[in-house]
């Protein structure tokens, strides 16, 4: 027998399911709903898969790598600005990975939960902003000033790289062309650009570390 899903569970599911596939997934969950426990179980197993699939669809690995390097460099420079010297110990360098990961998580989450077709002028800023916000969670591991400067720097740098390499969802798309092909065809012309940019950043990082 079909039943109405519990309101609270449905609201949580609505919040967690990415907007791009919310309509059909919520509908399927409601259609399958025979009991509250059944709805909970279905949602518990389906939602993480839906989120993972959305991440796989929107993440462009070369661009993500570029963002990771930009963000780490931002926190490295922030540590330099805040302390007047570059972090010397390996532990300190590793510690900067924590806020960098938080910023990257923010960038990915903002893209996953972006409303399809609602492209705004500030869309490129949304991810870095959320990332910068999340970086403050890591202030236990890294001094507050480093987090503050790093978040600000990564906000500027990532927004700039996002203008050069817009997210897959914002790239011009054909009506009947598979997404993966679009992803590949879109990556081809820019592959040289991202390689040059990544190499330049790597060289900058190495030279900064040596000095």
């Amino acid at each position: 027998m079909r039943r109405e899903p519990p309101r609270i569970l449905e609201r949580i599911a609505t919040l967690l399911i990415p907007p791009a596939c919310r309509e059909e997934v919520l509908g399927d969950l409601q259609e399958r709903c025979a009991s509250s426990w059944g709805y909970f179980k279905d949602a518990l197993f389906a939602i993480p898969c839906v989120i993972a699939s959305r991440i796989r669809r929107i993440v462009d690995p070369p661009v993500l790598l570029l963002h990771a390097m930009v963000v780490y460099l931002s926190f490295l420079l922030a540590a330099w600005i805040a302390d007047g010297a570059l972090p010397a110990g390996e532990g300190e360098l590793w510690r900067l990975v924590i806020p960098s990961c938080a910023v990257l998580a923010g960038i990915i989450l903002a893209e996953v939960y972006a409303k399809p077709g609602a492209a705004s002028r500030f869309q490129s800023l949304r991810g870095p902003l959320l990332g910068a916000g999340l970086a403050f969670v890591s202030r236990i591991a890294v001094p507050f000033r480093v987090v503050l400067y790093g978040a600000a720097l990564s906000l500027i740098l990532v927004s700039t790289t996002k203008l050069l390499f817009p997210p897959i969802t914002l790239r011009p798309q054909g009506a009947s062309v598979p997404t993966l092909r679009l992803k590949h065809s879109a990556a081809q012309p820019s592959s040289f650009r991202w390689l040059v940019a990544a190499l330049a950043l790597l060289l900058l990082l190495l030279s900064v570390r040596r000095s």
Binding site: F45, A46, C49, V50, R57, S176, P178, R181
Partner: peptide
């Protein structure tokens, strides 16, 4: 699981083996 079906459907659509509409 229903989730595994969603993931596979997305992958098949990305490969151009299936198409979808609302």
């Amino acid at each position: 699981s229903l989730g595994a079906v969603y993931v596979t459907l997305d992958r098949l659509e990305d490969k151009g083996l299936v198409s979808s509409w609302l």
